[in-house]
Nucleic acid binder design. Sequence first.
DNA 1: CGGATTGGTGGATGATTGTCAAACCGTCCC
DNA 2: GGGACGGTTTGACAATCATCCACCAATCCG
Lengths: 110, 110
Amino acid sequence: MSDDERLPQPAPAEIDLVTVLHALGDPVRMRLLTSYADGAEHSCDPRHLGLEHLHKSTVSHHMRVLREAGVTTTRVAGRNRYVSLRRADLDARFPGLLDALLAATVAPEH
Amino acid sequence: MSDDERLPQPAPAEIDLVTVLHALGDPVRMRLLTSYADGAEHSCDPRHLGLEHLHKSTVSHHMRVLREAGVTTTRVAGRNRYVSLRRADLDARFPGLLDALLAATVAPEH
DNA sequence: CGGATTGGTGGATGATTGTCAAACCGTCCC
DNA sequence: GGGACGGTTTGACAATCATCCACCAATCCG
């Protein structure tokens, strides 16, 4: 599985904070982030992500934004793509940021 | 000075994470955030903020976005407006987020 | 092979956004 | 009163963006 290809993504040092924030400043992509928070790999099927109301090409677009911002990585295996969080890279570059973000999303008090 | 008026801003419980991230997903507004990180009040003059290249109405627009997202508060005193971070409100609602963001902006290694 | 599955590409469209310029508004002060 | 000062509002414009749709590409399987 380590010889699978990965879709283009920025090197760890190239991950830009403003770009990451811009990527996460969207409800759909924030939703994806919380789905990826378990650290597991996820397919791209909108139905597996609570995004049934969105066209698959729209979801594809959002996943590209996340990947190009350096938030996620995509492994290609056959006709499937497995998306997962770049937690180590993000934690190294922006210590505490991911934890704070994920903690904030599960405090929906209002 | 405590009887000065404040420009409209969301209540602490109404501050939305995605809205905050969207507000900070812009280089100019992120620059403003770092300027406000000292906790002090700042005037709106672009020349005091390293934004000499921007029109004052543009800066005014960015400050409005930050305020309406709940990131900053603006006190009106005579013909001056004093902008400052809503650090307590943000820390209460999104613990660790502001610290992580500000720490990340001062690690420009590459 | 041929069909089904998984997902991406490209175009179109309407909405949002960043910027500037000009006009405006309240306040301070001469 | 009448400038000058600090900032906001409005309008315009180009760029970006989120979304859908139709089509395409690669892979797997019978």
